[in-house]
Design a protein around this nucleic acid. Sequence first.
DNA 1: ATGTCTTTGTGAACGCGTGCACAAAGATGG
DNA 2: CCATCTTTGTGCACGCGTTCACAAAGACAT
Lengths: 261, 261
Amino acid sequence: MATGRTHRPATRSRGIPEATVARLPLYLRALTALSERSVPTVSSEELAAAAGVNSAKLRKDFSYLGSYGTRGVGYDVEYLVYQISRELGLTQDWPVAIVGIGNLGAALANYGGFASRGFRVAALIDADPAMAGTPVAGIAVQHTDDLDRIISENGVSIGVITTPPGAAQQVCDRLVAAGVTSILNFAPTVLSVPDGVDVRKVDLSIELQILAFHEQRKAGEEAAADGRAPVDTDADEAPPMRATPTGRKGPDGDMPAVMPA
Amino acid sequence: MATGRTHRPATRSRGIPEATVARLPLYLRALTALSERSVPTVSSEELAAAAGVNSAKLRKDFSYLGSYGTRGVGYDVEYLVYQISRELGLTQDWPVAIVGIGNLGAALANYGGFASRGFRVAALIDADPAMAGTPVAGIAVQHTDDLDRIISENGVSIGVITTPPGAAQQVCDRLVAAGVTSILNFAPTVLSVPDGVDVRKVDLSIELQILAFHEQRKAGEEAAADGRAPVDTDADEAPPMRATPTGRKGPDGDMPAVMPA
DNA sequence: ATGTCTTTGTGAACGCGTGCACAAAGATGG
DNA sequence: CCATCTTTGTGCACGCGTTCACAAAGACAT
């Protein structure tokens, strides 16, 4: 019970936990699928299964948005699609600019999932002059020199960075200077941005490394279960000769032990 | 995060928290950069800044791996690179198969970050017979029919799915049946997998929607600060006529008037 | 109405992750 | 050897997120 106040969650984007926000798109996708199948209502149990989450969690998530369900029945699909869309800000148009039109940038430009929900690829930007004018996914690539103007003229507030890592921070700075306040970073770089700017990163190599960790652990457990010698996964087998703090070993010769105190 | 039912009630395995594992690749990247600059040691403060995290958090993370630092000095870069690499399982070779060679799949195949650390693109698989044999990133695409054999012969345990959403679950099932136990899913689908299989997803559209949410919130606050009428971000303005079950086609045509306001 | 049945919404407990703050450990200099 | 200085490693407290379990709300049948 929302403390008896109205069923309206008092303007609270503030009150919506980040973890919940991250799941809303998941619910929305499942609901959209139901909507296309003309399913009128859905229970928390069913929807949770479709979204791959716990039903109690789903109900709590929805409770942050308000009381949109009916006890004994479930949730009205269309109504919920609308409420979540509105909460996520998908009822308005979001022009997006992609900077760095290499393999990945081009792939994203062609990606259908973009236009589907409020997002529109408004500009493609690349530093290579040779690419200027070349159409990618039906949109002419523009040169980085015009980045500022392009962002302003199109009212872009969300930028996608798909440049090589070395250029990412610079591009980021320029985007922010031009007025972008949300960045989706595909470059394997830690971006630093001023307060008020949101950055989310998508990092293939990090994801793979996390999978490798679990994969290795599984292999080790399996070996142990087989009764064989477990994979040596944590002993200090042949470390690269833990460098003595003072004297560095061989190759680097007389590297002065620099290390700004 | 992983979507499947991969919930492990804290295996006694390694006491390394999931959150820490997710940051290790970040530290590793920063350390590798330092290593290339021949920096011998680094303090938790410096490294934390480079990785974009809190220094106390970094120290605690490292403490799960062991005591690899030297008080008063810091951490030996080379030694730490080795320890983290080993912990993540990057000292061994991980053959990876990419299924679905469209724009995105091809872009990933060409992505350099792959080979860099233990990962090797061992096979490209696509359902389109016309693509079979076509070289992408120097590797000939093979047909889905041979998926099982390809996975087995190459000892692939990590699969990357870049197919259209409709094919993702089926491809996933086949990968798992063939022996894959870790999946990186780029398709906008919730994959269900048996226990013991890890799934991580990369979802462009979800990331954008999360950014849109915050963007909308920022716009609302800004408007409020300007003294203008705040963006209506939560009132029940013009809902799609809450569940007016008016003539919903379907088996149950009668459709009671549910969902009162 | 009354009773039964279904499903929501949420109080409460728990566990994980984060950040502070500090003692311990080691380096360094006299 | 002792004093001082730097930086690690961690005990502790706090807050967020998850999950359980259940009372309340409403649908539906009689």
